[in-house]
Computed example of a mutant assay.
Amino acid sequence: MQTALHSRCQRTCKAASSRPGSAKVPVCRGASLTRSATATPAGALTNNGASMDWHLQKLKHVVDSGDFNRAAVDVVFKEALKMEKVRPGSPESRVLEGYIMSTLFYEPSTRTRLSFESAMSRLGGTVLSTESAGEYSSAAKGETLEDTVRTVEGYADCIVIRHSQEGSAKRAAAVASVPILNAGDGPGQHPTQALLDLYTIQREIGRLENIKIGMVGDLANGRTVRSLCMCLSMYPGVEVFFVAPDVVRMRDDVKDYLTKRGVKWTEVSDLREVAGLVDVLYQTRIQRERFTDMDSYNAARGKYIIDKELMKILQPHAVVMHPLPRVDEITTDVDSDPRAAYFRQARNGLYVRMALLKLCLADKMTADDLNK
């Protein structure tokens, strides 16, 4: 787990405590989550009484789902619940006033990029962004990722990065003096998506322990399911069903990871069988951009589709999730079903990312303070 605190946070923590946004209690905004807004009381979002201080968790960067323990997840969840209630113009909406976030996206994005930028703006911060960084930044001239990060950290207090190469976020974190938040590194990791997925499951189902989840679609290339598996392994009684075409089955490293942590997993070919068993059906699209062989892509797509007929099998309390975008793997007539949670899931991404930015940038206690 990362242990160092970034120097800029140390320099600014005293100043941050006197900012208008230093109040701890948010003003009620009125959450718009229809199915989940009243499903889970605030207290149910935590499981172990974790301290609310982020730096007790000794996290500097958000690059790997494996860096999070249950205490750290609880801290994020408590803060995200507050973020749901932040109202424009309130002191809480200015907590990141004076801070700058840079977004470096080398791959396309809608939800992740806009939710990060919206999160920063809703907390009073400023965004520096480059469109298609691989094409329109100095990377097109041959600049290394490390040099780009070293340059951009001089302009910003944190960097949100999405890259096509697995492990790129860790490379960035290795040279950065400001927090790096991994917004997806190829088929590798997507830790903020995993956190918002956990948050959504907790809000929708009411628990993270003793759940059954079916993961469907492109599991070999799906960084969202990989990261989510790592996070779910922290909770007892979780059972995972992998449903995927042969060419995109879940990779062995994730299955080994789950096995070592005592998580039961099964590979299943019948989606209808899984739909009747699970609390969460987590669908993913077949990622065409990850294929070099279009014959393999065509063989994989369209095999597992969630439609109204399949929804009849789903248990009444269960939910369907999807990291989006979807192509044809969930039919649009499912959208009106109250168990279709994927747009609520996307909205939760805003609150979780607001929480992470606030915790990384505006937590006013440093590790030195805590150890006195």
Rank of each mutant, 00 (worst) to 15 (best):
residue 10 Q to E: 15
residue 13 C to D: 04
residue 28 C to P: 12
residue 29 R to P: 05
residue 29 R to I: 06
residue 29 R to S: 11
residue 30 G to E: 11
residue 36 S to V: 05
residue 37 A to L: 12
residue 44 A to F: 08
residue 52 M to R: 15
residue 52 M to K: 15
residue 55 H to N: 13
residue 55 H to L: 12
residue 55 H to Y: 14
residue 60 K to L: 03
residue 62 V to D: 05
residue 64 D to P: 02
residue 66 G to R: 12
residue 68 F to N: 13
residue 83 M to T: 07
residue 86 V to K: 03
residue 88 P to K: 10
residue 102 S to I: 10
residue 104 L to C: 04
residue 110 T to K: 00
residue 113 R to T: 09
residue 127 V to P: 05
residue 127 V to A: 03
residue 127 V to R: 01
residue 138 S to R: 00
residue 142 G to P: 06
residue 144 T to F: 01
residue 147 D to G: 02
residue 147 D to I: 05
residue 149 V to E: 08
residue 151 T to P: 15
residue 152 V to K: 02
residue 153 E to V: 03
residue 157 D to I: 10
residue 160 V to I: 03
residue 164 S to C: 07
residue 180 I to Y: 03
residue 180 I to V: 12
residue 192 T to K: 07
residue 205 I to Y: 04
residue 205 I to M: 04
residue 209 E to T: 11
residue 214 G to W: 01
residue 219 L to R: 15
residue 223 R to P: 05
residue 227 S to V: 12
residue 228 L to S: 08
residue 232 L to P: 10
residue 239 E to A: 12
residue 239 E to C: 08
residue 242 F to K: 08
residue 247 V to Y: 01
residue 250 M to C: 13
residue 252 D to V: 04
residue 253 D to E: 12
residue 276 G to H: 03
residue 282 Y to R: 00
residue 286 I to W: 02
residue 293 D to C: 08
residue 293 D to M: 10
residue 301 R to P: 07
residue 305 I to V: 09
residue 322 H to V: 07
residue 323 P to L: 00
residue 330 I to A: 09
residue 331 T to M: 06
residue 344 R to S: 14
residue 352 V to F: 08
residue 356 L to W: 06
residue 365 M to I: 10
residue 368 D to W: 13
